[in-house]
């Protein structure tokens, strides 16, 4: 019958709407389900996974020594020309001239965090850091020199 169908239709519609309202009502009263992370406040407790790709850094040990031989593998592997290796000639202990890196220039503004340079590095000289707050006021600050001033290559790394 027409009227029966009409009323059934309305009843079904109201029921479906009430179902949705029950769901939102549930969340309105259950504040434990809130998933918001209050980002700048939780900086101390923020735990980024160790594989997170934030920026490329070159670890130095306590003697200010790094592991980079200047093989340019990273420079070649990079799809964007983010890394540039600049050489200098250095005298080693025996007084021989030896090629070593002067600066390893890293353009953070060009980097896409693809991890290919770290994969390519044969001596594990560079790695990804977990920093992610990269905003600066001057674009030039994003061009970084990865090796510390006066740093040397670690002994035994070829």
């Amino acid at each position: 019958m027409f009227i029966k169908k009409y009323i059934q239709e309305i009843w079904g519609a109201v029921k479906s709407l009430l179902k949705g309202m029950r769901r939102t009502g549930y969340y309105f009263t259950h504040h434990k389900e809130i998933i918001t992370q209050q980002y700048p406040d939780n900086r101390e407790t923020l735990n980024l996974p160790e594989r997170f790709k934030g920026e490329v850094v070159m670890p130095h040990d306590e003697n200010n020594e790094h592991r980079c031989t200047g093989c340019q593998a990273c420079e070649l592997a990079c799809p964007n020309g983010t890394i540039k290796v600049i050489f200098k000639n250095e005298l080693n202990a025996e007084g021989k001239k030896k090629k070593a890196i002067d600066k390893l220039v890293y353009h953070l503004e060009l980097c896409t965090m693809c991890n290919l340079c770290i994969e390519a590095c044969p001596s594990d000289a560079i790695k990804m850091a977990q920093t992610f707050e990269h905003s600066v006021f001057d674009r030039n600050e994003l061009t970084k020199i990865l090796n510390n001033p006066g740093s040397k290559i670690m002994d035994g790394v070829e």
């Binding site: 594989r51 896409t112 965090m113």
Partner: peptide, 21 residues
């Protein structure tokens, strides 16, 4: 994704011959 691949959206996890990590 972040834990395994190191990124949330553009992971670049695939390499020819397998996966990166």
């Amino acid at each position: 994704m972040e834990e395994t691949c190191g990124a949330r959206l553009t992971m670049n996890y695939m390499v020819p011959g397998g996966v990166m990590h």
